[in-house]
Design a binder for these strands. Sequence first.
DNA 1: GATGAATGAGGGTTCATTCAT
DNA 2: AATGAATGAACCCTCATTCAT
Lengths: 207, 207, 207, 207
Amino acid sequence: MPREVREREMLDAAVATFGQRGYRAASMDEIAELAGVSKPLVYLYLNSKEELFTACIRREADALLAAVRAGVVEPGLAPDEQLWSGLTAFFAHTAENPDAWSVLHRQARTHGEPFAAEVTRMREELVSFVTGLLRDAARATPASPDLADLGDRDVVGIAQALVGAAEALAGWANETPDVSAKEAASTLMNFAWTGLGNLMDGERWPK
Amino acid sequence: MPREVREREMLDAAVATFGQRGYRAASMDEIAELAGVSKPLVYLYLNSKEELFTACIRREADALLAAVRAGVVEPGLAPDEQLWSGLTAFFAHTAENPDAWSVLHRQARTHGEPFAAEVTRMREELVSFVTGLLRDAARATPASPDLADLGDRDVVGIAQALVGAAEALAGWANETPDVSAKEAASTLMNFAWTGLGNLMDGERWPK
Amino acid sequence: MPREVREREMLDAAVATFGQRGYRAASMDEIAELAGVSKPLVYLYLNSKEELFTACIRREADALLAAVRAGVVEPGLAPDEQLWSGLTAFFAHTAENPDAWSVLHRQARTHGEPFAAEVTRMREELVSFVTGLLRDAARATPASPDLADLGDRDVVGIAQALVGAAEALAGWANETPDVSAKEAASTLMNFAWTGLGNLMDGERWPK
Amino acid sequence: MPREVREREMLDAAVATFGQRGYRAASMDEIAELAGVSKPLVYLYLNSKEELFTACIRREADALLAAVRAGVVEPGLAPDEQLWSGLTAFFAHTAENPDAWSVLHRQARTHGEPFAAEVTRMREELVSFVTGLLRDAARATPASPDLADLGDRDVVGIAQALVGAAEALAGWANETPDVSAKEAASTLMNFAWTGLGNLMDGERWPK
DNA sequence: GATGAATGAGGGTTCATTCAT
DNA sequence: AATGAATGAACCCTCATTCAT
């Protein structure tokens, strides 16, 4: 069997095992067995547990970023609709790849460097993606005094909050039966776009 | 030395060690040494690593809940101001107890049952606390058609999103220099109460 | 059983195993079994294979040096008789501790730093011990133009040769039946003190 | 590429690797890579690690013996000058082939049978070569009562000591900067031919 | 003549846990 | 109330060796 194929199978097995057991609790034995190969082959191809885990993180981070970007490509949409598209793609992807999501959201950030750095990279790309959306939206609103008086730090903070809310909802949606990606995205838009204050007054998203 | 005191010292040492190393990487040896006692004594008082970790989680979850509740007790406040108080207390507590926060937010949820259950319990109490606030607020807004048409699931989802956003901001605030609890709370209120849509239009919290 | 005793037993087992198998081929399992303890206890007391081996080398090097020095203490002897005493003690010690001798002469010098350094230290002490003897002898021979025109390097070289010859004879004596320490020492004195050129002419040591 | 050439390249690589790493630490992977061939080819030609190492030892032992014999062929020389020639050749060869010398002197004798036997064979040939020289020399000294009263065992012991001294000096010369083969040989002749007792009295070799 | 793919076996190290005192 | 001594089990990693092509 060609190396490339085997290597992908190993990564699949590793993501599943790491996602379910955690980095430390996952054993190379279990990963090898799940991949249907012997342990030495895993080492031959991926060198060490650390490199294997890093390779998992990188692959899944790239896949998630790609999924979100792909979900938002339709041009000419209003900013809130773009955001909604991205969120829907995000929730759909995490729901379809729960082990990968566990690796990224839980395991990788819990086991120190050099793993956290990989996820921080992804998170920063998501955050900058969101801040881009927000700034675009602000520019497109003529009456707006822009987001200028919020300051860069506030904007980043808000994006962090949005990503964190999305991540929490992803976990909740995965554990709650029958919550579709669209429903999760709508819930989040209600919360994040409309704002609690206006929800109180009966407003809803989409208006 | 009385048992109760020793036990608290052990839990302190355990929270610090688990928080910094993670559940698996923390060794009973290290915890015992940090607590200044011999390993068999740890076992005598706390039975096993699993029970020790569970005790840590439970103690810190209760402490965090208590801190948030204590931050909100002033009666007669407007709902948004109550929310702001609770968030401020939350951010202050997590900033002052980073190891405890690491145990609750990262470690406990990363290492499967029975630990995740403890955190889920805490999270659900936070969520129900927040939903209570929201429902109270809605009742206090006469013009509101209440939150009724949102459905229970939406309300819970929104609360989950709020808690998730708060958790993400807590992490970000801990890693970013000089972000005070009040600043984090204000950022979150801007995001969560005002809503992104209205931020675009120049609105800010507090109005 | 008290720690000190156990530790000595472990070192005994380790010297035997390292001496017979070599550093790499000796397994911690075998050493532990020969010492009658479990492997973790070996690690608890001696930390690692490397430290264990180093401890063996150090202990045996010190023991050998002490044996040689003890063999030479009689004051007032002529230099050649002092040398003969030291050599006899050396051959007796190596014959009685063949595993220790293997560790020092073969294993330690074959497995790079930091082991070789320990043996180099011992060898240098032996060499400086021998050069001391030689210089004393030269001073005590009034007619001698001293060893001055030999230069320091020649003296060290000669001492190295003597130690090397002794080491080779030790190996040969251990493998050849019924070669006593005294016989080996006498053979070496014939070679080293009398010199081949004079042996040819029928001279012998002692004259 | 013809088999013979490939095989020599493999042995070269193996001698270098074994000499530097030691028998156990050298891996077939590293040897194959250094030889520029795939691992199965090494097995095809040399069957196993053990046989490969044995082949290395045999080749280098023969080369060293040949070098010493070649250094001594000039007929009609005095016995001490013949000995000096042989030693010079020995020191020159070991200095030019440090990896080979490491294999013979250190590695081969440190890793038990069947390797030690190969070196013992070589050593015995050296010893019998030297005893031949000595006996020839004794016969050529009319006044000498021959070496008869030394007994065979003494002669062999003396030859062992000489070879051991030469080996020790070879190691010392390799580690000490700027010690030429001739200098090492002269130092050894001073020691071995003249004898320490006469060095004390100011004698030197050559007289 | 030559190799990419693959593995059984074994070694160093760590750790949660217990027993006798 | 407290500990020094000890271990079974498991984990990461390496390596000599083979097979199909």
